[in-house]
């Protein structure tokens, strides 16, 4: 088994999420915060300001006049889209590289992350259960951040992991845990702790494959989990882990969802494919 300390030390090699992004997320999770407070945070970060303005002025938004200030941008776009832009901007560096060891090419982890976040939004809109939209969007986007580091160790132990999955009925994350001593959810949660994310966000990352049964009752975690499965089924997880994750059907009952609801979410995702492609190209 690999020395877990060795894995944890690798966290330092990630480019940390800028403190301002973490602050914005925190504000967005708090229902009492205002748009002005968020704009105030953005203007104190020059590169974030530049990116928000660049993206607002791109043809995709089609605003009739030039957006020249962050204040304008936040009013025009609204809290939802601002949070999304900030997140996409600050996380893309870490996820857009080559994760060769999971068999993922350039940018594929990033594509999967953005697609999951997009699906969780569709799923949330299709489901009557109240939940925190920003929280699930963020969680879907960063749930697999652990793979960025664990990938190197997965590559080293790949044969063993592969045999457990192929011949012994293990899911990929169970095999990671067995062979390496840690799976990508646990490592992702450690990274999120290091980056001082909220307790709830850390919780969702740690439980996003619902290995711990108690997490299945948590609406936000269950939404992130289901959105991930939808992405896998749509062929968006082309890594060596593939679709080797467990589906717990009781999650659907707990969320009062049917197979038809799930297929509806898949169709809605397929419908918005083009829009999503342009979002991916923006960042």
């Amino acid at each position: 088994m690999t020395d877990i300390r060795e894995i944890v030390n690798e966290i330092e090699t990630l480019r940390p999420i800028p403190p301002v992004a973490a602050k914005i997320l925190e504000l967005a999770e708090d229902i009492n915060s205002s748009l002005a407070e968020i704009a105030d945070l953005i203007i104190h970060d020059p590169s974030l300001t530049a990116n928000v303005l660049r993206i607002c002025n791109s043809a995709n938004f089609g605003f009739s006049r030039k957006v020249e200030s962050v204040h304008d941008a936040t009013t025009l776009l609204g809290l939802n889209r601002i949070v999304k832009l900030v997140l996409l901007d600050s996380l893309s560096h870490n996820l857009s590289g080559d994760q060769q060891s999971y068999g993922l090419g350039e940018g594929e982890l990033w594509r999967h992350a953005v697609l999951s976040a997009h699906v969780v939004k569709i799923m949330g809109a299709n489901n009557g259960v109240p939940h925190n939209k920003h929280l699930v969007f963020t969680a879907a986007l960063i749930k697999d951040i652990g793979k960025v580091i664990l990938g190197r160790f997965v590559a080293f132990s790949f044969e063993k992991i592969h045999i457990l999955v192929k011949s012994h009925g293990y899911s990929f994350n169970e095999a990671e845990k067995e062979v390496i001593g840690m799976n990508h959810e646990e490592l992702g949660a450690l990274i999120a702790e290091r980056w001082r994310f909220s307790e709830k966000l850390i919780y969702i990352i740690r439980n996003h494959h619902l290995s711990d049964e108690s997490a299945r009752d948590d609406t936000e975690t269950a939404l992130v989990y289901l959105a991930d499965l939808v992405c896998m089924m749509m062929g968006m997880s082309t890594g060596v882990d593939g679709l080797a994750y467990r589906f717990y059907s009781d999650v659907l009952n707990r969320m009062s969802l049917t197979e038809k609801d799930l297929q509806t979410v898949i169709a809605a995702t397929g419908e918005s494919w083009e829009k999503l492609e342009s979002l991916l190209n923006l960042v």
């Binding site: 896998m232 089924m233 659907l252 197979e259 799930l262």
Partner: peptide, 9 residues
């Protein structure tokens, strides 16, 4: 397919 005993997915 994902690992699903029930066949729902």
């Amino acid at each position: 397919q994902v690992l699903d005993q029930t066949g729902v997915f």
